[in-house]
Amino acid sequence: MHNVKRTRQSPEALAETKLREKSKIDEYLTLTDDVLSRKKPDWSKDAFQLTQSLLQINPEFYTVWNYRRNILLNGIFPQSTPEEINNLLSNELSMTTAALKAHPKVYWIWNHRSWCLENVPDGPERNGTPSIEWRQANWDKELFVVERMLDADARNFHAWNYRRYVLANMPTRRNETSELTYTSRKIGANFSNFSAWHQRSKSLVVLWESGQLDPVQSKDEEFELVSNALYTDPDDQSAWIYHRWLIGSGENKEQLEREIQVITELLQEQPDSKWSMESLVHYKRLLLQHHSPDSKALKRECVELLSRLMDLDPIRYFRYRDLTRDLDY
């Protein structure tokens, strides 16, 4: 790192550091050999403990995660009661929670958690019917855990993907309006949170398709929300992508013209806003495509914007040039 004074280690200290590193490598290699060199399947608790020791050193060793699950399925679960299995899986979830704190983006840890949840047994019978008590408790706790992960890193796309998985598979589904509230909070904290915008779009589609939310009114509210984001940071692409998703194929002429006016006013305030210019070109081309195919004024406006973009963003010069040619102006 720059401007950080380096401390020179003595030859003795360097030798001691190398010795510690060699000791860790030797331990890891020994553990790996113990786990993988067995001649026949070993589903014992000793083997189970060895996998844990190895995964604490290297949580990306997916073969060992697979082996650990096989030990549970073939060696431990058959000798356990449903309550004991539930406790074992709860311990697995606790173990991987600790692992995620150090390695929040290791796919195999998230994958093991989902496997654990999917194998939680039914709870004690209620009136002759197996209850979902244990499963619901574990899934509820899982949603809490993933929310804490997103509090620590609101852009962790692994955690967002996992959150969608949890919400889709909970024994008792949550209302999608609660997810809108959650994404509102995340977006309010940081307009640049692409994953939160994406999650919001998924929830809205469900609410629209199920008739729980009026598409026309709610879209107007969404445009107001995203416009605040655009004016706050016009250089961030997250809100622009969401805005383009809201516009869709551009069949609503009134909506298109209204949003074009909003972005035009933004461009007047921020004359070098590349995203404003690109969006105006895109939306005006949608007007040409669906509503005013012969408008020379619209074509001229697009060409002028593309010309400014060629100067402002020379890396994409040929893209803008090809768009200009497509306008046949």
Rank of each mutant, 00 (worst) to 15 (best):
H2Y: 13
N3L: 14
Q9H: 11
Q9T: 06
Q9A: 08
E12L: 04
A13Q: 09
L14T: 04
K18M: 07
E21H: 11
T32V: 05
R38Y: 07
K40T: 11
A47C: 14
Q52C: 09
S53H: 08
L54R: 09
E60W: 01
V64F: 02
W65V: 00
N70I: 03
I71T: 06
L73V: 14
I76A: 05
E84A: 12
I85H: 08
S94F: 09
A102M: 05
V106T: 07
W108M: 01
I109N: 05
I109P: 03
D122E: 13
P124R: 12
N127I: 06
P130A: 10
S131A: 07
W134M: 04
K141V: 01
V145A: 13
V146A: 09
L150E: 09
L150I: 05
L150C: 06
L150H: 09
D153F: 06
A154T: 12
R155Q: 12
H158N: 07
P171G: 03
R174V: 08
N175R: 04
T177R: 13
T177L: 11
E179S: 08
T181V: 04
Y182A: 06
R185W: 02
I187C: 01
G188Q: 03
N190Q: 10
S195I: 02
S195A: 09
A196W: 05
W197K: 02
Q199V: 01
R200K: 02
L204Q: 00
E209R: 14
E209T: 11
S210Y: 07
Q212R: 14
Q212H: 13
V216I: 14
Q217C: 06
E221W: 03
D235G: 12
D236P: 07
I241R: 15
L246R: 05
G248T: 05
S249N: 15
G250V: 06
E251F: 14
E251V: 12
E251W: 11
E254G: 15
L256C: 12
R258L: 15
V262L: 13
Q268D: 13
E269W: 10
S273L: 01
M277C: 01
E278F: 01
V281Q: 02
V281D: 02
L288H: 00
P293T: 00
A297V: 10
K299D: 04
V303T: 10
P314F: 06
P314S: 06
R316D: 08
Y317S: 07
Y317E: 09
Y320A: 01
L323N: 00
R325E: 01
Y329A: 11
